[in-house]
Design a protein around this nucleic acid. Structure first.
Lengths: 172, 172
DNA sequence: ACCGGTGATGTCACTTGATGACATCACCAT
DNA sequence: ATGGTGATGTCATCAAGTGACATCACCGGT
């Protein structure tokens, strides 16, 4: 990320990254599938973490309540290092390929959540709709959180964003 | 798309595409920014079409009603050639890079819709939430529509999907 | 009929991302 | 000392893009 910040993603070559890490380009590609993936190393962990939050929700919870619990877990996991998040977010947002990669990571997360909801007996299309909606809230709340210098914490932002969503979808 | 269907996206080389079109690879890249883009040629048109639908909605319409009108327009635009849609969808869905590209096209659409809603006086985060929610419905409805051999038409599927979304977000 | 401009295409050279094949080397258990 | 294993390096190669330049068809004005 140092290099991506310094000279931009496209202007950075894999050979340079490898050199700064004291490695060869070939070795880089043994750890990361491609040049983008290095910024998303933690996403598998996050997904597992959120899935555990989903499993931990009580049986009585409605689909939306399950997703709400997942968002709480996401907020405490992501809401820690604001400055680092901001930097990473800025790098990703200034490059189309990186935004693509981020979107597909979130899509994967959404698919996993939907699958989890189905395992809990939620039928389609409700499972997918609830999961995707949750990801929308996650994304928009995160976006707001990083762009405000010292605003509310991420959990709070998530909750108010989710509330707005309910309002907006309900209003006739 | 012929070639992508015949041998798969990755196994198809730009030189081959160009050759079948009676051109050179260099010329291909003058028309399409990259190998993926060729499958998304119509997306700018679709976006403009939907933006016109958004502008055409009455001033009295709520954000969600505007999005609903946009979804109607999308359904009639996309709901025509089911077989072609199915084929394209299958090609895109069997390749990660293509799915990434599709996601970012939809993200662009969503951003445009949000911008359109803001121009209508809808504040943030409501504008983004409504737009993103609309895209979620669009995607899930489209998915269901292509995967059912002879089910309801796309407009109908969109409407019922939107209804389910409202139910799911409202349920306590 | 000639001329100059314009746009589309081709050719060539080059960079970079990505991958397979093979060689090395450190380390560990026997 | 021996052999196996995992991580790394080296080399060759392919395909995606891109810039620079040449070519060619066509069109309008003289």
């Amino acid at each position: 990320m140092q290099l991506y910040v310094e000279r931009g993603f496209e202007q950075t070559t894999v050979a340079e990254i490898a050199k700064r890490a004291g490695l060869t380009a070939r070795t880089f590609f043994r750890y990361f599938a491609d040049k983008r993936e290095v910024l998303f190393a933690g996403s598998a962990d996050l997904q597992e973490h959120l899935m555990r939050a989903l499993e931990a929700a009580p049986n009585s919870a409605s689909p939306m309540q399950v997703v709400s619990a997942v968002l709480d877990a996401a907020a405490t996991a992501l809401g820690q290092h604001r400055e680092h998040s901001r930097q990473r977010h800025s790098v990703i947002n200034t490059n189309a390929e990186l935004r693509e990669r981020e979107l597909i990571k979130l899509a994967s997360l959404s698919a996993a959540l939907a699958e989890g909801l189905r395992r809990r007996g939620v039928p389609e299309p409700d499972a997918s709709l609830t999961a995707e909606t949750g990801i929308v809230v996650l994304r928009i709340a995160f976006e707001r959180w990083v762009s405000e210098p010292h605003g509310a914490d991420l959990s709070q932002t998530m909750r108010t964003t989710l509330d707005r969503l309910k309002t907006v979808t309900t209003a006739r």
